[in-house]
């Protein structure tokens, strides 16, 4: 059925039809729709900002970069990866290069849209930190 393959019904695809071509033009994909992000999703995108990685290396990087404060279990990681794939913030990536750790694994990388969302979320967090500094919750950087 048509709706099964089109769960995001709010995000309409409008077709520009001409005599020669019929191509879909995506509209309504708004960065704001994805903000604020959950902490785990944000860290997944942050891990992928450095380049394509497979699931386990994403988990490892999150754990290491947060000194073990954020530990994402495999089930939650792949559930969030599924959501990020559907939202087109990340995409699967076929490694053709033997330098990748394990070519049999699924690799993921940030899309251009995902990078924009990550940038906006980072700006939002920075603004929150600035607000906390203004309210003297944390000291100002000298």
């Amino acid at each position: 059925m048509a709706e099964r393959v089109y769960p995001q019904w709010k995000e309409y695809i409008h077709y520009e039809t001409t005599l020669q071509e019929r191509r879909p033009v995506k509209r309504g994909r708004d960065v704001e729709e994805h903000l604020p992000m959950s902490s785990a999703s944000f860290h997944i995108l942050l891990a992928l900002a450095g380049g394509a990685q497979h699931g386990y290396s994403i988990m490892r990087e999150i754990r290491e970069s947060t000194d073990g404060r954020i530990r994402v279990a495999p089930a939650t990681l792949y559930r969030l990866i599924g959501g990020l794939l559907r939202s087109e913030l990340i995409e699967e990536f076929e490694p053709g290069d033997p330098s990748y750790e394990d070519e049999r694994r699924k690799y993921y990388r940030l899309t251009t849209f995902g990078r924009r969302v990550l940038t906006e979320e980072t700006k939002r967090l920075v603004a929150t930190v600035e607000l906390a500094r203004e309210r003297r919750i944390i000291p100002r950087l000298s």
Binding site: G55, Y56, M59, P74, A75, L77, Y78, I81, G82, R105
Partner: peptide
């Protein structure tokens, strides 16, 4: 056994990856 509790479509997509990631997690 725990993975069996997830939806079939989710397992079809990610069960192998989850198993592999968990195995590496345990090894580390």
């Amino acid at each position: 056994v725990l993975i069996r509790a997830y939806p079939a479509s989710f397992r079809a997509e990610y069960a192998n990856e989850m198993r592999w990631a968990f195995s590496h997690l345990c090894a580390d």
